[in-house]
Amino acid sequence: MNTLLKLKKVNLKYQTGKKNISVLKDINLITKKKESISIVGESGSGKTSLIMLIGGLERATSGKIFFQNQEITKLSEDSISEIRKKNIGIIFQSFYLIPNYTAVENVALTLELNKFKNPEKEAKMLLERFGLKHRFNNLPGQLSGGEQQRVAIARAIAMKPELILADEPTGNLDTENSIMISEILFKYIKEEGSSLIMVTHDQKLANKAKRKIKIKDGKIK
């Protein structure tokens, strides 16, 4: 039983006014444990919608999604939250750190939510691992883009999740920082054995993944 994630005939439609827009069409996807996948495609092709569905942040219009053999499409929002907080880490293009929390507090939030005994200590260890020892008590506004994204990665991996979802993790960064972030990310999944599903426009980054999926007009090609 090596399957971590399974999507079966998943469809996603949005309604704008009287119009129904099909964003994802009959998506079938199986992800194994420790696998890294990059999703590429043009803007508006449905890449981000796909990882939103996988993360349980959006509900599929039809089809089934299984995470660790449990169908999550039928679960309540709170139950999905429970799965997400323990098993899924998400990294966003725009970092999304809580502005009035320090770097340590942003990372500790996830740990505390999972009832860690020393969340701040754990958070500091993670940040130190990412070269942010000198930034423990800085607010996001006092950090550079690269530093903010490192904090965001630390927050996402704090729980050692089975699956990391990354949406354009280097999209808002310069080349130097992009390289640093991708190295950190891939080093981490290699060391800890997490799976990664990453949406990116950056071909170099996409190529680093074991499997590359291309989406066009809501369908996997």
Binding site: L57, E77, D78, S81, R84, Y96, N100, L109, L113
Partner: peptide
Amino acid sequence: NMSIAVRKAVGFYSG
């Protein structure tokens, strides 16, 4: 708004 969304993303219940 964003902080609330982040909390939801990391697994906080809406309640």
